[in-house]
Structures are given as structure tokens and as C-alpha cells.
Design a protein around this nucleic acid. Sequence first.
DNA 1: TGGTATAATGATAGCGCTATCATTTTGTAA
DNA 2: TTACAAAATGATAGCGCTATCATTATACCA
Lengths: 324, 324
Amino acid sequence: MRLEDVAKLAGVSIITVSRVINSPELVKPATREKVERALNELNYVQNPVARALASNKIGIIAVYIPAAIDLTNPFVMHFVAGISEVLSKHVYSFLIRRELDNEHLCDGYIATGLLKDEVKQIYQYTNERNRPLVLFGHTEHPDIDCIDVDNTLGAKKVTQLLIENGHRHVAMINVDEDKDYTLDRALGYRRALEEAGIDPQHCPQIIAVNNVEGGYGAMKRLIVEHPEVSGVFCATDTLAIGAANAILKAGKKIPADLSLVGFDGLGHDLLVRPNVTTVHQPVYEIGMRLAETLIARLNGSQKRVKELVPPDLILRDSVARVNG
Amino acid sequence: MRLEDVAKLAGVSIITVSRVINSPELVKPATREKVERALNELNYVQNPVARALASNKIGIIAVYIPAAIDLTNPFVMHFVAGISEVLSKHVYSFLIRRELDNEHLCDGYIATGLLKDEVKQIYQYTNERNRPLVLFGHTEHPDIDCIDVDNTLGAKKVTQLLIENGHRHVAMINVDEDKDYTLDRALGYRRALEEAGIDPQHCPQIIAVNNVEGGYGAMKRLIVEHPEVSGVFCATDTLAIGAANAILKAGKKIPADLSLVGFDGLGHDLLVRPNVTTVHQPVYEIGMRLAETLIARLNGSQKRVKELVPPDLILRDSVARVNG
DNA sequence: TGGTATAATGATAGCGCTATCATTTTGTAA
DNA sequence: TTACAAAATGATAGCGCTATCATTATACCA
């Protein structure tokens, strides 16, 4: 079933059929009708591969999520859902790529979850293929469109919340990964301390694997080794869930005995008690913005996009005044 | 950058270059080396669209998830992750489609989350495009490869668990949706009751919207209207979380005052206390099996696949003996 | 009625690759 | 050396569509 078959039946040339499909306004109504009848009769279905080859447009965006990243992670899911919403409006499909192999059946790339080394790699990869690239994070790279959460600001805000509630002995449980957000959140934490005149040296920072067990173990250690600490900032909500379990297990109350804050805000609130005060990362929105940015590029935009999205505090039930 | 450029540089024909890329064993080592040098020097990158057009193979599987289904649902993402694992081994990419429009840039289709009406629609759609289709669920359709959880069996098992623990007054909170799994779980529930000699008429079944709030409201009603009930089966874990909240809010204990069981088993266990006994749906594995089935079809298999995967009970802390 | 502008349609050459068949080269045995 | 088979390479025709330019039909005005 090709344009040719339809053309033959309708008694026109194939290009006229193509026009009826792609720009019907260019075809005289009488002819158009004739062609449409033929299209219907033959139940014509276009071959998008052939169109892609001829027009150099495929209608697919590749979302690159390295194989090391767990797809079922809510962070990833919300990100992908945001992308999906925007792309479907623009008649783009998207595919999820887990590695950078020879294929590149797409018009452009969105990437997330990259380690620093991987940024150079995908930059080269997309350049070789002459396709635009937009990134979640890594805003330090001048030649790539990037959008990120302002991790430093978020960490600072939430640490300040602890301080404002009278906590002078605070601690941070951070993630054991070579990613910017780790450093940025640690930086925000330190800045909040310094601005409040608290010596960061006196405020422990524990490194843990980013899962519930990691948070649990770190908090357990913290309770034993630093009994003076009254407020804890966990670099992720996942860590915070583990930490909360450890606190309760130790027979302490949240927030009466220990105040706890997290970072992510991806819906755990419905599931955990007490609800942990946290920083909401607008991941869904960032997915949307990145998709919009990429589409703008595909439509010819030359504007370099660099955005730092300020996160919001979500105040819940896990912070109390010291001795209050 | 085309095969032609490489061929010119290497002093061979384009087809020889194509062979070096696709079936190097057919090329004499000396020639192969010459071509490989040229490939490297020019940094050749293949155009997969052209290859797809010429070979009628694209290397993409479309996963159709209707736009009505929330992508951030863990059910969906585990399913997708299972598909992803298998496909990446077979050098296929996959793309997520949210609606059935004119595009069909793929070798075959995997679909989930379909309403009954939508099954016919996608069946016709894929037939017109001459592409194989495999489905999660809807095993009643004789002409489609389908794999499903045995929902009836799972619901029966978990209801029996309540009965075995002495609960004679049980209730079910079911989902308000026109899907098979709804009916099947209700059926399993009823069968378990009947086999135990309990009249289903005396065991309430409440319909709720499938979210935490829905479960909460339904449970609240149940406590007021049916105080005799001592064991509740929720058709989804999401409902069970809401139900658990309602029970605790009412000042009752789980499982001392009320036993509670769910259905899904998708990792909420880490987040909710007490952990709810549930039925584990092997969604990830079903994603894998569907992907394998589709690939078998693409490789020429003619075997109709119909599988009902038996789910497992996950025994946790939310069921106790009556008056025990 | 003729001439010109404009609308409508058509012919044809790719897009970059693979499949098919044809040709050339190489290897082996008589 | 010759003959023949097998291995290696090449020429060419698509795959089904769109872009580009050429041609033909129609409209409009003087």
C-alpha cells in the first residue's frame, strides 16, 4: 500500500496524494475529495520511515537515562511524565535509551542522571549526529542547554528552617555519589550554618548509600556518636525515610526529640508518618521545560537556555522548636 | 557523511562498506581493515532511518500506554522497566506512545492499561499496519498474544488467608473501573467465601476511586456501617494504604482490631507501617515475558501465547487471628 | 479575445541504505 | 597451464516518501 496505489485509483499523481495528506489547503477541493475517497477505500497508512528519510524529520525524541539509573525511581517517573505531556502536544513520541550505541533514530536528545564524565560523552555523541541536546542538571557546561533545580538554595532554605527553630546542633546525611546535587546540597547546608554563625566543623556530615537502609544505618550511627544533635537534614527523602525509621526504633519521637528534614518531595508524604518536612523538586516541570526547550531548538531557536529552578519548602510535621 | 564518502576514501564500493558494518565476516581481512580505517578517519555514523527503509526493520518496539494512565504509577514503571531489560539485550529501543495516531515507527506493539473497547481498536490499528501485538491482560481475546496475572487466584488466596485466620465477617473494597482485574478480583473473593461456606451476600463490597483518599473514605464508611467486619480485602495496595490510615485514625489497631490485606505488592512495604499483607503482581516479569513474546513473533514464531501468571502472597504484619 | 498572473498539478531526483544478482578475483586440482 | 568452484566484490534497483522545479489549467483584466 503506497502513495502510488492511491494515486492510481484516484487518477492523480503521487505528489498530489502526498499534498492531500500533508497540506490539503494546496489542493483543489474537487481533487482533494477524489483523493480522500481513494485513501479511505484503500485504507491507506503512511510509512513514517520513508517520510523520515525524505524529510529528515522523525518525530521522536530520545530520553537518555543511563542503564545504572533505576527506571522505577519516582524521580525518573515524574521527569518522564513531564516530558511526555509536552511532547504529546507537539506530536512527538519519545523513546527511552539506556545506552549510547549506534542507533540514533530521533530528532533530539533529553538526558538525565548523568555523571560528570558522561556529559562529555553524550555531548560528543549528539554532536556527531548533529542533533540538539538538553540536560537536566550540569548547568556548568556552557555549550549545552541545561535546566536544574537550585539544590544549593533548597538545602540552604531547609537547613535555615532547622536553625530558625533553635537547632544549633544539626547534622547532614548525604549521598555517596559523584553528582553535582550532592555537592550543591552540602554547600547550601554549610552556607546556612555559616550565615548563622555556626561552625560547620562542629556539625557532622555522614555519607550513606541512597536508599532506605542507608538512611537507617546513618541515623543509627548519628544517634550513638552525636547525641547532642537535635536536627537532621537528609539529602534525599529516601534517606529521610530510613532515618525516620531509625529514630522511631531508638525509642525517640519526631519531632519532639529530633527534628528531621528531607529533600525531593516526590509524593512519599502520603505514605510516611510522621510526614517529613522537605524540599520539593519540580521534576515534572523540569521535564516539561526541557521538552519545550528541545522543541524550540528543533524549530530553529538559537537561544542558549540555562535555568535554575528554585525549589519550594514543603512544611510538614517533622520539625519542632528545640525544647519546645 | 554517507557510505559513499567512506567507499571513496577506502577505494571500494559502497556495498563493501555496508558489509564491513553489517557482516564483516564476508569481507577479506585486508579489505576490511582498509574500510575500517576509512570509517574511523571520517568518523562515520550510520543513518538508521535509511537502513530501516531499505531493510524494513527499525529496531523499535512501541509500548502503548493510553494517555489516561498515569505514567508515574509504579505499576506502569515496573512494567516498562521489565520490557526495557529484555529489549536492550536484543538491541531494540522502545518508545512510549500515549495515543494511536498516524505514526507507527516501530516493529511491533506492547500494550497495557486498556479498557475493553480499546482492545479492538489497537487490534485493528496494528493489523492495518501489519505489526505484531502483545497485551498485558485481556486474555479472553483469542487472536492476540496475552499475558496476565491470575487475578482471580490471587484474590482467592488472600481472602482465604483471612478466613483461615478465623475471619467470618470480611469485606472487600474494590476499584470503580471497567477493567477485567476488578471483576476477577471480586470473583476470587466471592469464590473463597463460597468455598468456606460463607454467604457472600453478608460480606459487603464497597466501590471506591483507586487512590489513597478513595481507600480512606471507603474504610471510614465500612467501620461505621459494618462494625462486625474484622477482615478487609482491598483490591489494590493504594486503597489499602488509605484504608490503613482510616483504621488508625478511628483509633483502632492493625491487625489487633482489624486485619487488612491488599493486592499489588509494588514496594510500598518499605514505606507503610504496619506493613500490609498483599498479593504480589509480577509486573516486571510480565513486562519481560511480553517483550520476549513479541521478539519471538518478530523472528517468525507462529505460536499463540496465552499465559496466566500466578501471583504470590506476601505475608506481612497486617493479619491476625480473630480474638487472637 | 489575448495576455498575464496565479493556482493546481505533475515529473523527477534524491534521502542513505540493503537486497539481489552479476562480475571479478582467488584457490585448488588435474 | 587450464578448468572450475568458491570467495570476494561490485552494479544497480529499489524501499516509499518529500523537495524542487517544470508544466498545465484557471482566473482575471484590458
